[in-house]
Amino acid sequence: MHVYEPRLHPVAEKDIPEKALEALRPYRNGEGDIYAIWGTLAAHPDALRRFLVFGNHVLAKNTLPTRWRELVILRVAWLAQAEYEWLQHVAIARRVGVTDDEIRSLGRPGPAGFAAAERALLTAADQLVTGAGLDDDAWKPLREHLTTEQLIDLVYTVGQYQTVAMAINVFRIQPEPDIAVLREELALPAPATS
């Protein structure tokens, strides 16, 4: 994978306004450093604080089971070819029990090896990312497996992580060293070719 020079660099912690720093308190790695994505978006501290409110719902208050949420996020990351997002969520997905074979499958067209509800979620993620909508064939199995709140959270999850993927790709945000090592094990698969 080609590593590009970042277009925007993370803001130094000493230069982040106090309100934004407070909002970023839970968004630090094991070393206590602010994650590069959030440090980069801290260049617009007011927008960052507001964005984190919604992001906190999607990541921490979501009605989708954590496993389902992570499958969807990884699928969005693959579709968008957002390496930073992919690597961060490979680590999270592993912690919630998603296997490496399942993760690899998410980086292929028509991922295999998932239960009916998960296949429905992944089909929906594909359609939401590529067409900003769902056809009736995608909607019906979702309605069978998800509550109304979960359906809404599915759309929010795809939208949130598609937005994050755009920021990653546009600003060329690079993964932290502790996450970059995952390139050797579970690198972002290349996009599907037609």
Rank of each mutant, 00 (worst) to 15 (best):
residue 163 T to H: 10
residue 192 A to R: 08
residue 80 A to I: 01
residue 101 D to S: 15
residue 28 R to D: 04
residue 87 L to E: 13
residue 145 H to T: 01
residue 96 V to S: 12
residue 97 G to S: 07
residue 85 E to F: 06
residue 51 F to Q: 13
residue 170 V to G: 02
residue 131 G to A: 15
residue 19 K to D: 12
residue 85 E to R: 06
residue 52 L to K: 02
residue 5 E to F: 07
residue 147 T to V: 02
residue 80 A to Y: 11
residue 74 L to D: 07
residue 176 E to N: 07
residue 135 D to T: 12
residue 103 I to F: 07
residue 175 P to R: 11
residue 119 R to H: 07
residue 83 E to K: 13
residue 124 A to W: 06
residue 101 D to F: 00
residue 93 A to T: 08
residue 126 D to E: 14
residue 168 I to F: 05
residue 13 E to K: 06
residue 100 D to V: 11
residue 49 R to N: 04
residue 31 E to F: 00
residue 185 E to R: 15
residue 25 R to H: 01
residue 26 P to N: 05
residue 117 A to I: 00
residue 117 A to C: 02
residue 120 A to Q: 09
residue 67 R to S: 04
residue 160 Q to N: 11
residue 80 A to G: 12
residue 33 D to N: 14
residue 182 L to T: 13
residue 93 A to I: 03
residue 185 E to Y: 03
residue 163 T to S: 14
residue 91 A to P: 00
residue 179 I to N: 08
residue 62 N to F: 11
residue 12 A to F: 02
residue 49 R to W: 06
residue 11 V to C: 04
residue 140 K to H: 09
residue 29 N to P: 05
residue 48 L to Q: 11
residue 63 T to L: 01
residue 63 T to P: 07
residue 84 Y to D: 05
residue 164 V to W: 08
residue 112 A to D: 13
residue 36 A to Y: 03
residue 49 R to E: 14
residue 49 R to D: 01
residue 180 A to R: 14
residue 80 A to K: 15
residue 49 R to V: 15
residue 185 E to C: 04
residue 88 Q to D: 00
residue 58 V to G: 03
residue 125 A to W: 00
residue 86 W to G: 13
residue 113 G to F: 04
residue 132 A to K: 09
residue 91 A to G: 05
residue 188 L to E: 07
residue 102 E to R: 12
residue 117 A to T: 02
residue 159 G to V: 10
residue 63 T to A: 10
residue 187 A to Q: 12
residue 72 V to P: 10
residue 161 Y to H: 13
residue 76 V to Y: 03
residue 89 H to K: 09
residue 116 A to G: 05
residue 187 A to T: 09
residue 126 D to Q: 13
residue 10 P to E: 05
residue 113 G to Y: 04
residue 8 L to E: 12
residue 79 L to T: 08
residue 65 P to C: 05
residue 141 P to E: 02
residue 25 R to A: 14
residue 89 H to M: 10
residue 120 A to R: 08
residue 190 A to S: 14
residue 161 Y to P: 07
residue 127 Q to H: 08
